[in-house]
């Protein structure tokens, strides 16, 4: 056991943790909107929209995240047309490619979580809102959303932790996140166990923190 290596690698790994957290927060932020959008399409009455939304979530949940990143990072660069548009300034950065892939991926899972939350809302609540003469938007923001948030919190907490682990794949497209730096240190020092303990410890601490935040929110939102 090489304690010195663990101590010297800790600052580097903590620095890389910031990259991981940035990737995580950006993709969760965008993913939430994507998820909400597709969840609404999924519960819409239009059959075409349902199928569209279902195929989106099936596509992203049925393939590995690594494939999705590679398609976006390596694949989209092949389309010459894209290089002439403003999109190219985003797509040539591995950082943004990773965020796009993560957002779409977590969006697909989030849409499933939100859909099942929307489906548990009792019809009576909506009917009550309608008979009170509320607008559609008011019904949506004041009835749908609060109930769905409460229903989906436990599952969404899991999704946050899964996504945190998912950000480790950013290291495959040359980004130096926590896993990327850990791999770099391992491959230069050949001391995998020490680095694993430090990097794994940081991940576990993050898991622990997210877990407790969600637990606290669950308590806050339960109306017993």
């Amino acid at each position: 056991m090489d304690i010195d290596l663990m101590i010297t690698s800790l600052p580097k790994l903590l620095n890389a943790t910031l990259v991981t957290l940035k990737l995580l927060s950006a993709s969760l932020f965008f993913g939430l909107f994507i998820g909400l959008f597709f969840a609404i399409l999924r519960v819409a009455k239009n059959r075409f929209l349902n199928i569209f939304s279902y195929s989106f979530s099936y596509l992203f949940r049925g393939t590995p995240l690594l494939v999705q990143i590679f398609i976006i990072y390596f694949g989209l660069g092949q389309i010459d047309y894209l290089k002439t548009t403003f999109l190219w300034s985003i797509l040539k950065e591995p950082y943004w490619c990773a965020i796009i892939a993560f957002s779409l991926n977590t969006g697909a899972y989030t849409s499933e979580i939100l859909r099942s939350a929307f489906e548990t809302i009792k019809k009576g609540y909506i009917e009550a809102g309608k008979s009170l003469g509320l607008k559609y938007s008011t019904i949506f923001y004041k009835i749908h959303i609060p109930i769905a948030v409460k229903q989906s919190l436990p599952a969404y907490g899991n999704e946050i932790i899964l996504m945190m682990k998912g950000t480790s794949l950013a290291s495959t497209v040359t980004l130096l996140d926590l896993t990327g730096v850990a791999k770099y240190i391992i491959s230069t020092t050949f001391k995998p166990i020490e680095v694993f303990i430090v990097a794994g410890g940081i991940y576990l601490i993050m898991t622990f923190i997210f877990h407790n935040i969600i637990k606290y929110l669950e308590k806050k939102f339960s109306y017993q």
Binding site: M164, K165, T167, T179, P192, Y203, L204
Partner: peptide, 18 residues
């Protein structure tokens, strides 16, 4: 807890290099 809280890639690197 450890295996489910740590990214899969990190576990793979551990076994690959270690």
């Amino acid at each position: 807890t450890v295996i489910r809280g740590v990214p899969e890639l990190l576990v793979i690197y551990l076994f690959f290099f270690g």
